[in-house]
Amino acid sequence: MFKRLMMVALLVIAPLSAATAADQTNPYKLMDEAAQKTFDRLKNEQPQIRANPDYLRTIVDQELLPYVQVKYAGALVLGQYYKSATPAQREAYFAAFREYLKQAYGQALAMYHGQTYQIAPEQPLGDKTIVPIRVTIIDPNGRPPVRLDFQWRKNSQTGNWQAYDMIAEGVSMITTKQNEWGTLLRTKGIDGLTAQLKSISQQKITLEEKK
């Protein structure tokens, strides 16, 4: 169930391209415009997507990853294993993690069937560096609404905000991946996880038929 919630949630996290980005210092504006741009692209490019579902990787690479804190999220997933990894191991892992996100997020976007969304009203940021933004996803086919909290983090150097995690039903996506990959990290280390991520990233994206 959580895996499905995570995939549905990713439908609204794909941010804007650099040329049309919203105010990078306001995570609420980023979330709002990102959702609108993403849904528009999914709707307008269905012919290309249906002809070649792996085209979704391109959308992810162009529109999402430049505005997601990939390395920060990847380091959180590694936890204690990050500090013990060599620079070469980290570089290989982050490259594999990025390719994994292209496949995983692309597969999530393949679930698009006309969903709509509501974003919580903007709250004062103050001096906060981590801000959760509640998004409610509404399914046109009558499924119950899904309420999610996207975690946005302020870059201490640039002042810009980027998304790095999502919490559904009190469970963090980062925590879920830590639990899912924990045994592999304990037995085969970061190299074993890197190899698995490379394998997963090679899987073809498949479209979910409308139910």
Rank of each mutant, 00 (worst) to 15 (best):
G182N: 12
S172Y: 03
Y67D: 04
T116I: 15
Q46L: 09
P47Q: 12
P27V: 12
P144S: 06
Q80D: 01
R4L: 15
T183I: 09
Q178M: 07
P132D: 04
Q162G: 06
G159Q: 11
L16E: 05
T183D: 10
K43R: 12
A88S: 14
E122R: 12
V12K: 01
L65F: 15
I200H: 11
A19G: 08
K204Q: 13
E180W: 06
N179E: 05
K3C: 01
I130M: 04
G142V: 13
Q118D: 13
Q196I: 06
Q151L: 05
K204E: 10
L30T: 05
A75V: 02
L65Y: 12
K83P: 04
R50V: 07
R153D: 01
V60G: 07
K204C: 09
G192V: 06
I119M: 07
K198E: 06
H113D: 06
T206G: 13
I133L: 07
Q46W: 03
S156F: 03
Y55V: 12
K128F: 05
A19N: 01
F97T: 08
I167M: 04
P15V: 02
Q123Y: 13
E91S: 13
A34M: 15
P87Q: 09
Q123T: 12
N155G: 02
T20C: 15
Y72A: 01
I119Y: 13
K198T: 11
W161Y: 03
A22Q: 15
N52H: 12
V12L: 14
Q103Y: 07
K3H: 00
A14G: 09
T38I: 08
L11F: 15
V68E: 04
L11S: 01
Y164K: 03
V131K: 09
Q123E: 12
T129S: 09
T158N: 05
T206R: 11
Y28I: 06
L16A: 09
V12M: 13
K154N: 09
D139Q: 14
Q103L: 15
M7P: 00
L148D: 01
L207A: 03
A88W: 09
S84T: 11
A108P: 05
R50N: 08
L184K: 11
V171H: 10
D127V: 06
D139Y: 15
T58P: 15
D191E: 05
Y117I: 08
R50P: 08
T25R: 07
I138W: 09
T86V: 08
P145T: 06
S156M: 03
L125F: 11
L42P: 04
W152G: 04
K83H: 04
R50E: 06
R143V: 05
K3N: 08
E180C: 11
L10H: 02
A35S: 13
P124L: 12
E180V: 00
G142R: 12
T86I: 06
V12G: 03
R90D: 04
Y82G: 01
A108E: 04
K3S: 03
L42A: 06
S17Y: 07
E63N: 04
N155Q: 02
L197V: 07
Q118W: 14
T158D: 07
S172A: 00
D61M: 06
Y55N: 13
K177N: 11
A108Q: 11
V60S: 13
I119V: 06
Y100Q: 15
Q203Y: 15
A35N: 11
Q89L: 08
R4V: 15
T187Q: 07
T58C: 07
L185C: 08
M7C: 04
G159A: 00
N26K: 07
G182C: 04
V135A: 00
L125D: 06
D149H: 06
A51K: 13
A108R: 11
L184D: 06
A120M: 15
N26S: 08
L109H: 08
N179G: 05
Q178E: 02
R153H: 00
L184N: 06
Q80L: 08
G182H: 06
F2M: 15
L42I: 11
S84G: 13
H113T: 07
K43F: 09
R41G: 08
Y117G: 06
M7I: 14
G74P: 01
Y67C: 04
Y105K: 01
M7G: 02
E180A: 01
G142S: 11
Q107S: 09
Q24E: 13
T25H: 10
D149N: 03
K37M: 09
Q178A: 10
K177V: 07
I130F: 01
F39H: 01
S172K: 00
N179V: 06
T136G: 14
Q123W: 12
G192M: 14
A195Q: 13
S172P: 00
A168H: 14
L42D: 04
V131W: 09
K210C: 10
D23W: 08
W152A: 04
N155V: 00
R50F: 09
A108W: 15
Y67F: 09
L193G: 06
T176H: 03
D191A: 00
L184Y: 07
F150I: 01
P15S: 14
K128R: 09
Y117D: 04
K71Q: 04
D191C: 14
K204L: 08
D32E: 08
T20S: 11
P132Y: 10
G170D: 03
E209D: 11
L197G: 05
A104D: 03
L125K: 10
F150Q: 04
A108L: 06
I200W: 12
D40G: 15
A168I: 00
L30R: 14
D32H: 12
Q151Y: 03
A14P: 07
S199W: 14
R143W: 03
P27N: 03
P121C: 05
P87N: 11
G106V: 08
P66W: 05
A21F: 07
N141M: 11
I138L: 11
T194V: 03
Y28L: 04
D32W: 08
I49H: 05
F150C: 02
A96N: 13
L101M: 10
I205G: 05
S156V: 01
W161M: 02
N141I: 10
S199C: 11
L197Q: 04
R153S: 11
D191Y: 09
I200S: 05
Q107E: 08
A75G: 06
K43G: 14
Q202E: 08
L30W: 10
E63L: 01
Q123S: 13
T129E: 13
D127K: 11
I137E: 15
Q103K: 09
A104F: 05
P144Q: 06
P144C: 02
D127N: 03
N179Q: 09
G182I: 13
V70Y: 07
R134C: 00
E122M: 14
T20Y: 13
D61G: 12
Q203S: 09
A88V: 13
I130N: 03
L56H: 08
L207I: 15
P124M: 13
K102C: 13
A120S: 14
Y117T: 05
D139L: 15
K37R: 12
I200G: 07
N179R: 10
M7H: 01
Q162L: 06
F94G: 09
K43N: 07
V135P: 03
R90L: 05
L148V: 01
T176W: 11
P132M: 10
A163K: 15
